[in-house]
Design a binder for these strands. Structure first.
Length: 334
DNA sequence: AACTTACTCAACCGCTGGAAG
DNA sequence: GCTTCCAGCGGTTGAGTAAGT
């Protein structure tokens, strides 16, 4: 990690040089930022940095908040289900980490990106090395997702080909996506089959759900609250929302575009989780403070802003028109 | 025990796009 | 239309740590 050594920085619009710290955040800095966010909510990050008495740039504060201090963050290792979902989403979205993160509540784009670049990529690479010597027709052992999913899926060869392209982070999205789409549209087979039938994971309520495969990814705008006009207030990127507004009460078994993280905090009343998290990353905060945060407000992470699901950039909207509204990941392409 | 290598992940950097003036 | 500011994103870096020799 980077040393928390202060360096000289320059305040824009002000010729006075001020010391802007870089590197790791100290517990004191975290506390300042957390307290400020609790009290004032999100605003202009450079103002936050200044007003909170932090000798950090706004950008750094934003990052710290998003990746570590946010109360709705989930910590700990990725579950197999999350891994599965990441692989699946990456095959569709490419390196759009923020989009992937938006479907993994409590996870940050940075976290997912790191996870992908270390664990998954390596795993896939290793497996490719092994399987490359085997017959190309030998089942689906060469399919990365099959690898990841323990052979649950039996994708078409064409899909495998495209997927292998997508696995390469250098080929992020548009070409990849178009290849995907070409297959999607020209192939009678669904290139994005449901992950598997028993969606006993990613259930909003954290309990096992036997939601059918068909509904697994059926994420409509209504499901995520904001699309139906459900979000309350705004905390900028992490809108203040009414707890459980985001479809938590529904039977949504989908990796909602955020929202489920509330469950992590509220349903579990999760002192231990919070403590663990706060301890994990460099330290800090006693449990009471953490809980207070949860009580005071709930930040929606990962840029889900209600109706404004941005996966789509316009081109995507058009491209995906025939793919069962991919932005909401309804994979029922039939 | 000492050293080296591999891995993880927090944080930084540079870029893009949107909003405001 | 141009400039400036800001938020957000993806790629990259590098310190800390675990695993291996």
């Amino acid at each position: 990690m980077r040393k928390p050594d202060p360096i000289m920085g320059k305040d824009k619009g002000n010729n006075n040089k001020i010391k802007l710290r870089k590197g790791l955040w100290s517990p004191e800095e975290d506390e300042k930022l957390m307290n400020y966010m609790i009290t004032n909510g999100q605003g202009c990050w450079s103002d936050i940095a200044r007003n909170a008495g932090l000798q950090r740039c706004g950008k750094s504060c934003r990052l710290r908040w998003i990746n570590y201090l946010r109360p709705d963050l989930k910590r700990g290792a990725f579950s197999p289900q999350e891994e599965e979902l990441i692989v699946h989403l990456h095959s569709i979205l490419g390196n759009r980490w923020s989009q992937i993160a938006a479907r993994l509540p409590g996870r940050t784009d940075n976290e997912i990106k790191n996870f992908w670049n270390s664990t998954i990529k390596k795993r896939l690479k290793n497996n490719n090395a092994i399987t490359s010597t085997s017959s190309p027709n030998t089942s689906d052992s060469s399919d990365p997702r099959a690898i990841m999913l323990g052979g649950l899926m039996q994708p078409m060869q064409a899909e495998q080909d495209v997927f292998s392209i997508c696995m390469d982070s250098s080929s992020s999205s548009p070409p990849c996506m178009q290849a995907m789409l070409s297959i999607t549209q020209g192939n009678p087979f669904n290139p994005f089959p449901p992950l598997h039938d028993s969606a006993a994971y990613l259930d909003i309520n954290g309990s096992a759900s036997a939601a059918g495969a068909a509904g697994l990814y059926n994420l409509s705008a209504a499901h995520v609250g904001g699309g139906g006009g459900g979000s309350a207030g705004s905390l900028g990127d992490y809108g203040l929302v009414e707890p459980y507004v985001m479809g938590l009460e529904s039977d949504l078994s989908l990796p909602a575009l955020e929202g489920r993280a509330f469950d992590n905090i509220n349903a579990a009343n999760d002192q231990s989780v919070l403590d663990k998290r706060l301890v994990h990353n460099n330290h800090h905060f006693n449990g009471n403070e953490s809980i207070k945060v949860v009580d005071d407000f709930v930040g929606i992470g990962n840029h889900w802003n209600g109706e404004n699901l941005r996966m789509g950039e316009l081109d995507w909207e058009g491209l995906l028109a025939n793919v069962s509204s991919l932005p909401y990941l309804d994979f029922q392409v039939e």
